[in-house]
């Protein structure tokens, strides 16, 4: 059936509007960041004027964004690796091992998803002030205070558990007969088969840790340890810094998430689909 011209025009207008709503803010951020004309606080521009990279230079070097970026990368790097490792091991136990209290453990992990960050913020702060077992040191004002609390994440544990359940049990049994122990089954058989899910979990974990704001804000006081989101917020209240520079810093902050997404996109899409339609 052919669409009438009026309907088609209407369609184009609606799509155009939707596009404007979604692309508009991005566009204005891009234009502002590369614009040589300084704007007043709270202002953004949509029209490109003189092109410059000066805003990025000021943000990166003068405002020490490189330092905060480095902090963020340290936290997100170690945090994501530890998170994926812990999640995969926990998921293997939940998916494949029969143990007393498995249901309770699952429920406890699930509960952590139901508690808003704000609720655990103060107790977490208090915990970081106390000496931790084994190391006998408080981790307050240390990278570990920003990394350790995000290592156990229920979302990635459950996601990997579901994927591991879908791996045929016979493969594991074949490996056991071939002489593999638990670690070898995990490393040689299970992990390679859940690669799409690992990709997804890495992306989600990376973005989740990268976006942490409240936790780094309360467990770290030292300016030199601040992560980018916290630092950006403090830059924003400085009246001497123009919006062009803040927006440039924001773009720098966004870059790693975009890069990791593009790198693992293939895995990400497969992971999402496999989670949606079982089979």
């Amino acid at each position: 059936m052919k669409k009438s011209p009026t309907l088609k025009t209407l369609q184009v207008i609606v799509y155009g509007l939707i596009l404007l709503i979604f692309v508009g803010p991005f566009w204005s951020v891009l234009v502002t960041a590369f614009s040589g004309t300084s704007l007043k606080p709270g202002q953004l521009t949509l029209i490109p004027q003189s092109f410059t990279l000066e805003n990025f230079r000021i943000a990166f070097f003068d405002m020490k964004v490189w330092r905060y970026l480095l902090n963020s990368l340290i936290v997100v790097g170690f945090g994501t690796i530890a998170q994926v490792l812990v999640s995969a091991l926990a998921a293997y136990a939940l998916a494949r091992k029969k143990f007393r209290g498995a249901a309770v453990v699952t429920l406890l992990i699930l509960t952590t998803l139901m508690l808003p960050e704000e609720v655990i913020a103060i107790p977490l702060y208090l915990v970081t002030l106390k000496p931790l077992p084994i190391i006998n040191e408080p981790i307050y004002n240390h990278y570990a205070a920003m990394i350790l609390p995000v290592v156990g994440w229920a979302f990635s544990i459950f996601m990997l558990t579901e994927f591991m359940r879908a791996v045929p049990k016979e493969l594991e049994e074949a490996a056991r007969i071939d002489g593999a122990n638990d670690w070898q089954v995990f490393g040689h058989v299970i992990l390679p088969l859940i690669r799409p899910a690992l990709g997804t979990v890495i992306i989600f974990g990376f973005i989740m840790i990268w976006d942490q704001y409240l936790l780094p804000l309360i467990v770290v006081q030292d300016h030199s340890l601040m992560t980018l989101p916290v630092a950006l917020a403090s830059l924003r209240v400085d009246p001497t810094i123009t919006p062009n520079i803040i927006v440039a810093a924001t773009l720098i902050a966004m870059a790693p998430s975009v890069i990791i997404y593009l790198l693992l996109q293939k895995h990400f899409n497969r992971g999402l689909m496999a989670g949606a339609v079982k089979g």
């Binding site: 049994e173 074949a174 056991r176 593999a180 058989v189």
Partner: peptide, 20 residues
């Protein structure tokens, strides 16, 4: 004894070949 110490080999109905 666990399977790996029994010196047996098994052919499964689904073959159970490691896909990767």
């Amino acid at each position: 004894l666990p399977a790996k110490e029994r010196d047996i080999a098994m052919v499964f109905q689904s073959y159970a070949l490691y896909p990767q």
